[in-house]
């Protein structure tokens, strides 16, 4: 997915001279084409994320679009106050891109697990929060992000994520995508874990359960209508996110349901409120923490009393 991101940003920069890439010494093997093509719009700030964010803000306030880019929590938590005070408060046209959302960097350990980012970013006024599910969404999301005037957080995957879309999509910020239709329950995924949600829906189908699957690529602003429509039409929801159970997609959906008085059964498949210190690949960790298709399907089945 990161390759898709870099290819698209390069295409946009070819057409729009306002695009700057502002890095903190991360991007090896991916960023070189941009650096070679636009050296005057490429700035590696060194390992200095606070300065990276401030510089991006300064560039943006002068009429440019600045993309900060690094892995996991480096361009978000390390410089959170710069994002809040400098970027968001000033509505600066800065795009914050992380590579390796969730536990994509699996065995690298807790420092490289971005598992609280959605909650933290969505709490910031002015911030748009994107988490594309596959490369097709990822490419479309880059264009949507750059067309949006203002701060955007873009949670990118790492590499080799399976595609969930078979055809072209209509990607709009704040408008979710129904990946498959269904009538008995709705599974809402965000980010690259959504392909496992699709596999879970296949398993449910084999058990005679018709599960709708929604890709909630924008966590903020959340597609309220899609959530409420799913609640009304399918009567039960499961949210799936590779993120701490506090404050992410599940919390956002629950808020929508509660405020609307749409009290349908809801389960959140998410990471427990702890640090995942066990060592393993991305897939191993996902299986271990309840994101196997079977586990997601079982959670959904139990929720509607269909057993496992």
């Amino acid at each position: 997915m990161r390759t898709a991101f870099n290819e698209e940003i390069l295409k946009i920069a070819e057409k729009d001279s306002r695009v700057f890439m502002v890095l903190s010494d991360i991007g090896y093997g991916e960023i070189e084409p941009f650096a070679a093509r636009f050296p005057e719009r490429y700035f590696n700030c060194g390992v200095a994320e606070q300065n990276m964010t401030g510089v991006a803000c300064g560039l943006a306030l002068e009429g440019n679009m600045a993309v900060t880019y690094s892995i996991a929590n480096f361009p978000t938590l390390r410089c959170l106050e710069q994002i809040r005070n400098d970027v968001c408060y000033h509505k600066a046209n800065v795009k914050i891109v992380i590579i390796g959302g969730g536990m994509a960097y699996g065995p690298l350990g807790v420092s490289h697990h971005s598992t609280e980012d959605i909650a933290i970013m969505r709490a910031l006024p002015e911030m748009i929060v994107l988490a594309p599910a596959d490369r097709i969404e990822a490419r479309a999301a880059v264009h949507a992000m750059m067309e949006h005037e203002g701060p955007v957080y873009y949670r990118c995957g790492y590499k080799k994520e399976p595609d969930i879309h078979k055809c072209s999509i209509d990607f709009r910020i704040g408008r979710s995508i129904e990946v498959r239709s269904g009538t008995d329950i709705t599974l809402i995924g965000t980010g690259t874990v959504t392909y496992r949600v699709c596999q879970a829906a296949d398993l449910l189908a084999s058990r005679g359960i018709s599960a709708r699957v929604i890709s909630m690529h924008t966590v903020k602003p959340l597609d309220r209508e899609a959530v409420l429509q799913a609640a009304e039409e399918t009567g039960a929801l499961v949210t799936v996110e590779e993120h701490n159970i506090c404050g992410g997609l599940g919390s956002a959906a629950a808020q929508v349901l509660a405020e609307a008085g749409a009290g349908v059964p809801l389960r959140m498949v998410a990471l427990p409120d702890t640090y995942i210190h066990e060592v393993g690949t991305h897939d191993w960790l996902l299986d271990r923490y309840g994101f196997s298709p079977r586990s997601i399907a079982d959670t959904a089945g139990k929720l509607i009393g269909a057993g496992v």
């Binding site: 990276m52 991006a56 300064g58 560039l59 306030l61 106050e81 710069q82 005070n85």
Partner: peptide, 24 residues
């Protein structure tokens, strides 16, 4: 030009503005 209040924020933004000015 810019809101501050937490220290250490002004100079990075000034650097970005200086780069932008030179670029333009």
């Amino acid at each position: 030009e810019f809101s501050t209040g937490s220290l250490g924020h002004g100079l990075p933004v000034a650097v970005g503005m200086a780069i932008a000015a030179r670029h333009a």
